[in-house]
Design a protein around this nucleic acid. Structure first.
Lengths: 71, 71
DNA sequence: ATCGTGCGTATCATATATGGTACGAATGTT
DNA sequence: AACATTCGTACCATATATGATACGCACGAT
């Protein structure tokens, strides 16, 4: 429930799933219609991501939003 | 995975749980250390909520973040 | 050595989430 | 009627997420 822990958990999940699908950061950014720099900042845990952005990422990764919050 | 659906789902959950705990919007806003106007906007589905804000709300409601994404 | 690719990061501009405040409507209480 | 409470909403200021671009570094291929 702590923000730092949650954001770390989420971006770790994103990185894992992206890697498992053999996508680079810029591949994922492209599928999300987003700047590569932004995806890089997100995966580095430097941004307080919005739900809209998470939806884009989950759509690009073809996973439900809930996956990112599974413990 | 669609943004509008997801945000509706999330705010509906928030309203349900808040009501079940007999809290008003301003009660919840106070527990979240947030403006009442902001909480009102959020529950109306007018904001693209950030993870940090969701963490505050879940902490105030004493629920894990994942609850808001359960189908 | 040169080139392409992937990544991190920095900077500035723009869009938007939130803070802070105020007003009005609905409802309940006295 | 008068008042308090709750909520919706509107407005402006501020903080920050994101867009857009650029630079440097590491690595592999040629």
């Amino acid at each position: 429930m702590n923000y730092n822990e949650e954001i770390n958990h989420i971006v770790t999940k994103i990185k894992e799933i992206r890697s498992s699908q053999n996508m680079s950061i810029q591949d994922l950014a492209y599928k999300c219609d987003m700047e590569r720099s932004n995806m890089s900042r997100i995966e580095a845990g430097h941004t307080n991501i919005t739900i809209k952005t998470l939806c884009k990422i989950c759509t690009a990764l073809n996973i439900p939003l809930s996956t990112l919050f599974d413990k």
